[in-house]
Amino acid sequence: MTNRTISIAVMAALLSGCATMERPANPINSQYAPQQFLDQDSFQSLCRPASLSGLELPANEVSSGMFAAKPDLLSAGDRVRLNIAGDEDSLSRTYVLAANGTVTLDGRYNIQLTGKTVVEAERLIARKLVEEGLIRGLLNSVRLRLAELGGVSVAVSGAVFEPGMIRVGERQAETRGVNLSNSDSGDRNLRRSLTVALRAAGGIRPDADLSAVYLVRGDQWTRVDLNGAISGHAIDDIPLTSNDRIIVGSGGCFQDALVKPSQVTAPGIRVYMSNLSRPAASNSSSSINSDSTSLPYGTRLSQAMVAANCVGGSGMNAARKVVLMSRNPITGQSVVIQRSVEKLVRYANRDQKDPYLMPGDSLACYDSFAMNVRDVISLVGETASPYFLLKNID
């Protein structure tokens, strides 16, 4: 009688520990999307419009169309071909702009070409050569053409996932070889543009204000409206030059329409998954690999649950729970959301409780109560068996 009492007490204590899962707690106002709330009535506007009072802009504002229509500006690493009438191989050759944006003629004369168009650079070179007495000031005696546009470094800040210095427009060695062997004048680098820089910075966040994207170049700046990148309308995808600054304004609100692959958002995201629930005993047997954890931007929790093999299986383990660990992209606060797998699959209002996944999110699946009870019974049996076996031997 005593042994039975002890066994029942031990089993009751163990079962009490797996009866319910404590709901994750979050700091106040850490949730940033309506789908992260269980009750839609508890969701209030989380809009926190960002202040631009500290935004330092030059005095000269220009239209975005002016920047878009302007010819490509030379930057460090670009290649130009100089041809001088009557000169075969002394000054006439291909030059690469140095890190400081200059080209060196005749090994002595440094000319700053960064931020200049090809026409402006041609005039500077012609003037310098005439001043130094190397050529006569004849009309059209100096010709400069663009051979290749290289990569440039630009600064991206504001409502993007990975702000910082971004390198865009780098060319592959094969492409560079083709450009240099091509006798045609001019070049077009499709990856040296505003939208490419935004994607390279991790893409815009869901709270971005696409009507307030600022491009700062020297003593000029412009405000660009990129809403067309989401709605399918034409936009000014401005070519960039070295040391441009891009600042993405924030509306402070989570916008579902911005959570999808586009010209200004990341095409895909990487998330982290763990599914150690029964009958699968490890992540490898759950087929969690690089293909299942690399998902398109705009993926919801319910889709990631299927990728992690959290949905389906035996009826005993149907009532699983899934936990999503995210981080508020606006404030940087961590957010943990718990959902019942079956409720998320079967309830008609699932879309209102099905959060979008953000880059770097993590999710984990937990066994159902029935599977926990099964494990407790197995544990009690494994613990008690040696005792009763020894007692019978005695």
Rank of each mutant, 00 (worst) to 15 (best):
Q35G: 00
Q35C: 00
Q35W: 00
Q35P: 00
Q36V: 04
Q36L: 09
F37L: 02
F37T: 02
F37K: 00
L38F: 04
L38P: 06
D39N: 11
D39H: 08
D39R: 09
D39W: 01
D39Q: 09
Q40A: 11
Q40D: 07
Q40E: 12
D41P: 00
D41Y: 07
D41H: 06
D41K: 13
S42L: 10
S42M: 05
F43A: 09
F43V: 10
F43S: 03
F43Q: 04
Q44F: 11
Q44R: 12
Q44D: 06
S45I: 09
S45A: 10
S45F: 02
L46C: 02
L46I: 05
L46G: 12
L46R: 12
C47S: 09
C47V: 09
C47R: 13
C47F: 00
R48D: 08
P49M: 02
A50E: 13
A50C: 06
A50P: 02
A50K: 11
A50Q: 14
S51T: 15
S51F: 04
S51Q: 13
S51K: 11
S51D: 12
L52A: 05
L52R: 11
S53F: 12
S53K: 14
G54F: 05
G54R: 11
L55M: 05
L55F: 01
L55R: 02
E56R: 15
E56F: 07
E56P: 00
L57R: 10
L57I: 10
A59K: 14
A59R: 14
A59Q: 15
A59S: 14
N60R: 14
E61C: 03
E61P: 05
E61W: 08
V62G: 04
V62R: 08
V62W: 01
V62K: 08
V62T: 10
V62H: 01
S63E: 14
S63H: 04
S64M: 02
S64G: 12
S64Q: 07
S64I: 01
S64K: 00
G65A: 11
G65F: 02
G65N: 11
M66G: 07
M66P: 01
F67L: 13
F67Q: 04
F67A: 11
F67C: 05
F67H: 03
A68G: 04
A68Y: 15
A68H: 13
A68L: 13
A68F: 15
A69P: 01
A69S: 15
A69C: 06
K70N: 13
K70V: 04
K70F: 08
K70P: 00
